[in-house]
């Protein structure tokens, strides 16, 4: 899922021409300078109301945060980073004791961190991403849809946002599903960096794919389609088009979950 505040403005506009006469250019310059002056005045008056506020987003020391998207939700309180075995012990204890699923920082951050490090992400970066997890509700989310958890590039770098709809009371065994979702997300988070400037992928006889939005690993925010798309095929169900599914991303995300469930 892409954040609802997309980076459409970064896309090249292919069919527009901006040729200006010298006179028009000068007139435009006057207008722009005037607008800048007014904007500066407004910013000065508005003070804290304008622009990203770094200190409010712990983790904003990561040079990957180029997207300019303000993270949604609220920061998850910091937990301990413990081993998978300890995560398993805590989860088992919660299920035995009938504890409902809740935003448990140690479980969430440890799953993200352990998998990212195991997948080769620099430990410092993995910790920053794990520590930047957001808990959102349907009024402060940054994912595409309500009731949706997602991961996206933001001012503080790549973050995971978990929607409160995942915390439903009355079924402690849902802890395992919850763990599985976090493990799946760990694969999405397991990239060394984010490419914001466009990427082209050449698949020869199958065509060329142009990525216009952010690209991270096997996932791209926006990419051109090709005639026969076996990487992100269109999905139809019950006669209705649902959208595209990125096969390698989902397949290996689930393969990562498989490791948790099988042992």
């Amino acid at each position: 899922m892409s954040p609802k505040r997309s980076k459409e403005h970064k896309r090249p506009k292919e069919h527009e021409s901006y040729a200006l006469s010298k006179k028009a250019f000068l007139q435009l310059g006057v207008v722009v300078l005037g607008a800048l002056g007014v904007t500066t005045l407004i910013i000065a008056i508005a003070g804290q109301e304008v622009g990203p506020k770094g200190p409010e987003f712990p983790g904003e020391f990561d040079d990957e945060g180029k997207g300019g998207i303000v993270p949604g939700g609220e920061m998850l309180q910091p937990g301990d980073l413990v081993s998978d075995r300890e995560v398993a012990r805590i989860v088992s204890e919660y299920m035995r004791s009938g504890v409902d699923v809740y935003p448990e920082p140690t479980i969430i951050e440890s799953i993200y961190y352990n998998n990212m490090v195991r997948n080769g992400v620099n430990p410092d970066l993995a910790e920053r991403r794990a520590r930047s997890t957001r808990i959102a509700n349907n009024s402060n989310y940054a994912c595409s849809d309500i009731n949706q958890s997602c991961q996206y590039d933001s001012l503080v770098g790549l973050v995971a946002e978990i929607n409160e709809h995942e915390f439903k009371p009355g079924n402690p065994e849902d802890w395992i599903r919850f763990v599985g979702l976090r493990a799946h997300e760990s694969f999405v988070l397991s990239v060394a960096g984010i490419e914001d400037d466009g990427v082209q992928e050449n698949y020869g006889v199958l065509g060329t794919r142009n990525i216009y939005g952010e690209a991270r690993g096997f996932w791209a925010t926006n990419e051109s389609s090709v005639e026969i798309d076996l990487i992100s095929p269109e999905v139809y169900a019950e006669g209705r088009e649902w959208g595209k599914v990125n096969l390698p991303l989902y397949f290996y995300g689930e393969a990562q979950v498989r490791d948790y469930y099988k042992r």
């Binding site: 195991r118 395992i176 099988k262 042992r263």
Partner: peptide
């Protein structure tokens, strides 16, 4: 397996 959780067999199967 690399990450496996020690969860009860019944719960695992169900999940």
């Amino acid at each position: 397996m690399r990450n496996g959780l020690d969860i009860p067999e019944s719960a695992k199967k169900n999940l």
